[in-house]
């Protein structure tokens, strides 16, 4: 009987001492958490997507509370969240530009072709190492879905050989932008015009490779009244912060590779 008692006493004693030390330590060594941080954390969507560049919503909330982070970085939360955060911090709300991912390639099976049949590992990163993935156009989407694999919102589908983004599901976190080995995915403002081609080849070569590529003809530049379009390296680019979405360039483009990014797909 005494043996059992000793055993119980010793284990219970160790537990008690550990408990007392821990609770004393948690009081004595407590790190004060800014009450603002918890309030901000409650406003954030809690998706932990990392679009803000911090390690999850907790990281962004703590950075905001300490005043070292820019406001309005939370794209999934949008303007509503930015407004609430600004109220907590007592500053003017920074507006969040609504963005969506867009694939700068039109090279579906009907527009372009491949030069060989690729049979390696089914990832774009590996395929890209072998003659840029085997498409006729070396800037084209490989279509093996590295972007779809990293998407947490299930917003990217591979259809007809190229990736397409579901703009209702896309939260604009930009994970696919870094995942694409070709670098042909871009975050574009909603309701802006957008050139869905990445080919920096000369116009004649682009035309030979693909029936829907940008040939750098400058028609869109002339059509734009706001100076939002520029052509560089035989490729048109539209600055979505200037673009009003009037659609003049869409009409002007002979290759049909400019479209307006309406919020639904």
């Amino acid at each position: 009987m005494t043996e059992v008692l000793i055993a119980v006493c010793i284990v219970a004693g160790i537990g008690l001492i550990a408990g007392i030390i821990l609770s004393a330590a948690s009081v004595a060594l407590s790190v004060p958490v800014d009450p603002k941080q918890e309030l901000i954390r409650d406003c954030l969507p809690g998706a932990n997507c990392g679009a803000c560049g911090y390690s999850g919503c907790d990281g962004y909330a703590s950075a905001l509370a300490r005043g070292i982070a820019e406001q309005g970085l939370c794209t999934p939360g949008g303007n509503e969240t930015a407004q609430k955060i600004a109220e907590i911090l007592g500053t003017d709300a920074a507006s969040v530009r609504q963005v969506t991912a867009a694939v700068k390639c039109n090279g579906s099976c009907e527009h372009t072709d491949s030069i060989f049949v690729y049979q390696g590992a089914k990832t774009c990163a590996t395929a890209n190492q072998l003659f840029s993935g085997g498409g006729k156009c070396s800037f084209s989407c490989i279509g093996l879905g590295d972007c779809a694999a990293v998407c947490t919102e299930d917003a990217i589908n591979i259809s007809d050989g190229i990736a397409s983004v579901d703009r209702i599901k896309c939260k604009g976190c930009g994970k696919c932008v870094t995942a694409c080995p070709k670098g042909i995915i871009e975050l574009v403002g909603i309701n802006s015009a957008f050139v869905s081609c990445s080919s920096k080849d000369k116009g004649a070569i682009t035309r030979k490779n693909c029936t829907a590529g940008c040939i750098g003809c400058m028609m869109c530049v002339k059509a734009c009244e706001f100076g939002a379009v520029s052509v560089e390296n035989n490729l048109a680019h539209i600055n979505s912060s200037i673009c009003t979405g009037c659609g003049k360039c869409v009409e002007a483009c002979k290759m049909n590779c400019i479209s307006i990014l309406v919020p639904c797909s």
């Binding site: 043996e3 550990a18 821990l22």
Partner: peptide, 25 residues
């Protein structure tokens, strides 16, 4: 105290508490 058989139990208890303490510190 002749309590060798409590080794596993006591060790788990102590290690768990220790890690918590280290975390706080």
């Amino acid at each position: 105290n002749g309590l060798d058989y409590l080794q596993t139990l006591v060790f788990i208890l102590v290690i768990a508490a220790l890690v918590q303490l280290v975390e706080i510190i």
